[in-house]
Design a protein around this nucleic acid. Sequence first.
DNA 1: TCGCTTGACTTGATAGTGTCAAGTCGTGCC
DNA 2: GGCACGACTTGACACTATCAAGTCAAGCGA
Lengths: 194, 194
Amino acid sequence: MPPNLREKVLKAAVKYIADSGPDGLSFRQIAADAGVSHQAPYHHFGDRSAIFSEIALQGFRKFTAAMSAPAHVDEDSNLVVRMCERYVEFALANKGHFRVMFRADLCHMDESPETQRAADDAFGTLLQAVGEILGPSASIDEIRVQATAMWSVAHGLATLLIDGPLENKIGKVSDRRVLVRAVARRMIDGITSH
Amino acid sequence: MPPNLREKVLKAAVKYIADSGPDGLSFRQIAADAGVSHQAPYHHFGDRSAIFSEIALQGFRKFTAAMSAPAHVDEDSNLVVRMCERYVEFALANKGHFRVMFRADLCHMDESPETQRAADDAFGTLLQAVGEILGPSASIDEIRVQATAMWSVAHGLATLLIDGPLENKIGKVSDRRVLVRAVARRMIDGITSH
DNA sequence: TCGCTTGACTTGATAGTGTCAAGTCGTGCC
DNA sequence: GGCACGACTTGACACTATCAAGTCAAGCGA
């Protein structure tokens, strides 16, 4: 009866994870909600970890697309600030994907090279952007350190905002933007004044 | 027969989490390993989430202690760099605790006010340290933003190093120190040149 | 000493879970 | 007509947390 059970299951899983986290996720419950037998989803994903790999794969692709999209008019003019902002906004807008993307214990990257490659691409996007800022004179090591710095800030902010102690303290998008920009500004000042 | 089952269970749980993450943790398995019935641990903790709350509580206390310890001779002279370093080193040295501390879904802070308070204390330590750096002229908002920036960097680095894509890339303590210091230096430059 | 609580368990049962192993059933193809 | 194959279903297994009763020794007031 359902035109595409696979999509339906995937969507339900992402929604559940966004609401309640990945741990309580139950294949059987999803199957019951979709009105199919408890083994129907298993047919499409084979394994509990397979659905997480798939979600992570989608997530990394969406992530890379979001990061490398052309600059919008109401975004910060600075590239690094913009990327930090996008990183955090992506995480907040795609909780269901983001919560899985950095959980190696769920994804089993080694069994899903596609997901691994999508993750590498995502990091590549970051490296490239930082390389552009620093200019051609920067060493690969320098770029790597700066990219790691930027990534850490954005990732730390995102996780603290989603699951951490900042969870309910900064709910409004406008407030979040102010915070992210303020934090990222410090970073970029540090980088360029180096 | 065992002098203190509670401690034994707690220790086993922390070790398991450090090795394999919190998700596969089984009360029954721990009980079996300890040579007691499957309900014995349940008597001490009442609930699966209770043991996570306890671990988080211990973690936050150890964390606060580690952060506010007097400066050691081979540490960076800069306070913020030192705190970032300690943060990351704490996370790496206490994976079992750290993995639980920022997982609100596991801890149920609202049911364990003690753990909540310990977490607040930890954030208080950070705020205080940043306040000292900025001096008495800094506004509370400014301190908060800077503390969040520092926290984000340290937290992002720690999580990326423990479970993220940097997991196996920077294993050596010496390399880690170089990276953390380099990243933190950018931060502090950004803060003081503000 | 009797009765009673209380802490530290044990035993048994229940519901829910992922996963293995067989079916079933309609569609398309040679 | 025969047959493979995708998309399921049904049934069973081992494992899990959790509820509900025991058991059993230590401690204590009367």
